[in-house]
Design a protein around this nucleic acid. Structure first.
Lengths: 237, 237
DNA sequence: CGGGTGTTTGAATGGCGTCAAAGATTGTGG
DNA sequence: CCACAATCTTTGACGCCATTCAAACACCCG
């Protein structure tokens, strides 16, 4: 079954953590980010419904991963972005990327932060650091999209997957989800293949190669980087 | 030699034409778009310099094609977007896509329209239709970028090139650059290959196939669509 | 007319996709 | 806690699409 369910209350802790590495904010700003909201949950594979009213859209991921997907006429599935805890699914403005379907990768918990985002947008002078930090995060997101276009356009299978692992590791580190050099990777090979533009079989092969070269180690949904230099070299070539 | 040179004065005629298909504007708005600016020219292959000051950036293409490019560490060249006459190279905001290098494909003539864009941004209520139309064009641009990611991620060589030809034809039609079903295509095979993520040789082969299947005809930089249905079918598959 | 740039072609190689089937994991209900 | 089903992963075999290398060919411009 795959529908939303209400639950506990959460605040934007992980976002606060990410922002803190870029700007330092006031007590009032800290308080705004500490506000709690009641959560909604979605099962893996279900679509997160986008509110009609743009001002009601701002939604924040508390836990679980999601992805923006696009099904083309011939039925092919292309993932355009991967969303992690601490990410905002929708923001105040509306861009085509945010109009794509958002699908839960695993059990997803989100909160609607339209109130906070409205407050920030209406009077940026009251929360200057948050506003600035959010803009920086927005830029970083777009930059990742461009990097991904480069991946799709001019990299080999090995480069694409090595690059993806590095990106996800970095993002997990930012939100404190790394244990040493290991992090939980809920993406199935099918999801990876739809994101990096390779077949499922080939994703499996590349992963095996990385494993046999002692560059990574995988175990029950956890991926550990054993040879960061080697992985980086593979991604860059 | 490849540097800028000043020249005649031009106005945003093609942009006005594109906007007119989406919104209808007042006499004052028409006048704003009819303002003329002194042109700068760039030779094919040269980089169009981006002004430091964001507010001075808004630049409009009068004639010639350009592209946004990204050179990765290993030297690979990936084109992220193709710019045609009537397009804006930079706008008021700054997005990562607009921070990429812009290179002239052929002889390029541009005008700096910072004044007009500033007027529109500062008081959108005076030029509401233009503001709305520009927003629509901006959305269309982003949507094209997403389409291109789908191209790179999950389409075959034939699909990519057929889709590209259709896109360029449609954009040329919008600005009145189509004669029947033919339009001038200044992109070299090398440029196409860097855009759609194929090798130069393969681009040549696919073009030959399209030619031999009587789907397109090419002659000295002009490409004519002979079988629109066939081309569309190829692109969609 | 010569040189540079762009296009085309052939041949050989290989990366990657597809098909098919066997394992491994996970989750669910009894 | 076990059994079973469903999903995910892995592997082998095979073939094609696309790349690479190399060289010939066409085109444009001074």
């Amino acid at each position: 079954m795959s529908f939303a369910s209400s639950g506990n209350r959460y605040s934007m802790d992980l976002l606060a953590r990410r922002l803190r590495t870029k700007v330092n904010f006031s007590a009032a700003e800290r308080e705004l980010l500490a506000q709690s909201y009641s959560a909604r949950c979605y099962d893996a594979g279900s679509t997160v419904p986008m509110p009609e009213d743009p001002s009601m859209r701002p939604t924040y991921i508390v836990s679980g991963w999601a992805c923006r997907e696009r099904i083309s006429a011939n039925g092919d599935r292309q993932l355009l972005a991967i969303l992690l805890p601490g990410d905002l699914i929708w923001r105040t403005g509306e861009t085509p990327l945010e109009l794509l379907e958002v699908v839960a990768v695993n059990k997803l918990t989100v909160i609607n932060v339209a109130n906070a985002m409205r407050a920030i947008a209406q009077d940026p002078s009251r929360t200057p650091s948050i506003a600035r930090g959010l803009a920086m995060i927005g830029l970083a997101d777009e930059m990742r999209t461009i990097e991904h276009m480069v991946r799709l356009g001019s990299q080999s299978g090995h480069q694409r997957i090595a690059g993806l692992i590095l990106e996800l590791a970095e993002r997990c580190r930012e939100i404190g989800f790394m244990t040493g050099l290991a992090f939980v990777m809920p993406l199935t090979h099918a999801a990876i293949s739809n994101f990096v533009g390779l077949s499922v079989v080939h994703v499996s092969r590349v992963m095996r190669h990385l494993r046999e070269a002692c560059i990574i180690r995988t175990k029950s949904g956890i991926i550990e980087i054993l040879d960061m230099a080697g992985l980086t070299r593979l991604a860059t070539l």
